[in-house]
Design a protein around this nucleic acid. Structure first.
Lengths: 330, 330
DNA sequence: AAAATTAATAACAACGTTGTTATTTTTATG
DNA sequence: CATAAAAATAACAACGTTGTTATTAATTTT
């Protein structure tokens, strides 16, 4: 029983096609009648019928986000940010937590205008005719859709350089290694590349997983290293939080004794025990770029670019100059 | 350019209304023509147009799930399970991570048939005319929608009884206390009630939060208790995992020295360091109940019941008989 | 002030379904 | 074997929009 443009038309003494034009701000309708129609529409509590609109326009202005792995906090934050980013566009976003395949199928039914996928799900087959962008690793290059990726190598470069400038020479990396997780690999390799380039020594500490506790445990290994590092790069928010806690418990001041930089640039870094200096593409930028890209892809026949976003370093309190004693001893 | 029922009609030499009926298995169409139509439809790759269907039927067969706080793993698991539960119905589910208000508005635009809300968001105003069910605490009773809740008191009762039967007399509870989180409060109060009823001593250990680390830290307090407990009830998956780790690190065997039962009945309990005995409504049951309820609410004019689900105890390895020395010393 | 031009509005056919009513075909009945 | 009854199919009007074409009203132009 909801109010339709025909109801408005009757009330405002115009034809319903005029109402339609007025509601869409067509230049074909006189300003004064438009205003009247708008007023009546508001008074009657008009809500456009999406299904009808969709039926004739063949557009939904909805994009689907597929997020099959509800787990890591970074992704959760990214999802929230993407959702926020859509708010300022004329598109809406819906979310699915099904497998990529199932989700794509149901999004196709809904006739979404586009899809966003977290490319954790390898070798997925994009739905014919529905624009898609992926966020993730741009490894295998022969893709038919845009990929948004972070420049992990540059991130490591920036982080190490930053620590180097603070006087650090023994810089460890704590994270998952020798896995088939392409993202983690890019991080480690980025770290190793920079360290070599700068003539420093690699201090690789492999964790068992990506959780808080894996970082917490890794600190033991860090402290048993021949060269005790003066700085640590933690490979993710969770890992770094664990590292931070363990360091505190073992009586190391951060950053007075040991500096810590975390990968991932999310707001939560502000509220750890000691606000963490971090490196990575800020989530809000990332989110913005993702929604821009899918919208471009929907509205124009955009090419299939791989966009590498530049990370930035956010200075907080967990990283500082190398302590005096270490300067002399090294 | 997708294929419509009219295309099928032409191909199969019938009228399009017959096609419609055939596709909906109407008894009004002869079996053989129905089969032919179905075959042709399949051959042509027919996909029904949801918008058109929705326009005439005024139903979307979609329910929206509002999940404004992407954080706790239990909720994430619940969401996944709800999504799975919908798979075996004719309804689809879409998810929003916006604020309850925003999400409701956009779901209203999509004309979902129903909504599911996690009642973290207090005093929300349900959308007129759209069925809604909430999962959460049934505290204030004057609601106009069904609430699915777990019987927390009975959960504690079962857990304590189970430990009692194993010989435990000193049973501690570790969790958030004195907060305005109604759910947490129900848990503590449940615990305290049972303990009193059974003539045991309350051993309340308050944590600072609900994270892994809060459980980890709480173990210190547990061990400094006058009466060292032989069993602990952890208030959530994260808390209990932290407790488990801390106990191990401090050299306590689980369950040989100390037994542990965790609140929350999710599959992840199976894969902790030591598979955890846990208490709570199994997530899959919970999910099933939630989707049943919303569907009932959509399809019939159901009353606004508050459903309290019965928890069950899943026996694993973290809880066992009280150790010998404690039996004598108590 | 009539004709030509432009501006404003109205009419109406889509869009792809469903559901109701009208028509045709088949089967049963006397 | 006509005729009534039942079964199967076809026709067509919704549903609430948009966009195109037709009509009317208001301006210019001469």
């Amino acid at each position: 029983m909801s109010v339709t443009i025909k109801d408005i038309a009757k009330e405002a003494n115009v034809s319903y096609s005029t109402v339609s034009k007025a509601l869409n701000s067509s230049p074909l309708v006189k300003e004064v009648t438009k205003q009247k129609i708008l007023r009546v529409a508001k008074e009657m509590g008009y809500e456009p019928n999406l299904a009808a609109k969709q039926l004739v326009r063949k557009k939904t202005e909805v994009v689907g986000l597929i997020w099959p792995t509800i787990e890591r906090i970074v992704l959760a934050t990214l999802v929230t940010n993407i959702s926020k980013a859509f708010a300022s566009t004329r598109y809406s976003m819906i979310l699915s937590v099904d497998s990529t395949e199932t989700a794509m199928e149901s999004f196709k039914k809904f006739q979404v205008d586009g899809m966003i996928v977290f490319a954790e799900s390898e070798n997925m087959v994009p739905e014919e005719n529905i624009p898609l962008v992926a966020y993730g690793v741009s490894g295998k290059s022969e893709v038919t859709y845009p990929i948004i990726d972070a420049n992990h190598e540059q991130a490591m470069d920036t982080a190490v350089q930053y620590l180097y400038d603070l006087g650090h020479r023994n810089i460890a990396y704590v994270g998952l290694m020798n896995t088939d997780d392409a993202l983690q690999n890019e991080k480690v390799e980025g770290y190793q590349k920079v360290i070599q380039k700068m003539g420093l020594t690699e201090l690789n500490i492999a964790t068992n997983g990506l959780d808080w506790f894996d970082g917490y445990l890794a600190v033991d290994d860090v402290l048993h290293l021949d060269k005790r590092p003066t700085a640590i790069i933690g490979s993710s928010y969770d890992i770094s939080s664990g590292i931070l806690r363990a360091l505190q418990e073992k009586g190391f001041g951060v950053p007075d004794d040991i500096s810590l930089i975390s990968y991932d640039n999310i707001p939560q870094m502000e509220t750890t025990e000691i606000p963490m200096t971090c490196i990575g593409v800020p989530v809000d930028e990332l989110a913005e770029e993702i929604v821009q890209t899918i919208i471009e892809r929907i509205e124009s026949e955009e090419k299939n670019v791989i966009k590498k976003l530049n990370p930035s370093l956010t200075e907080r309190e967990s990283a500082g100059p190398v302590p005096e004693e270490d300067v002399t001893s090294s």
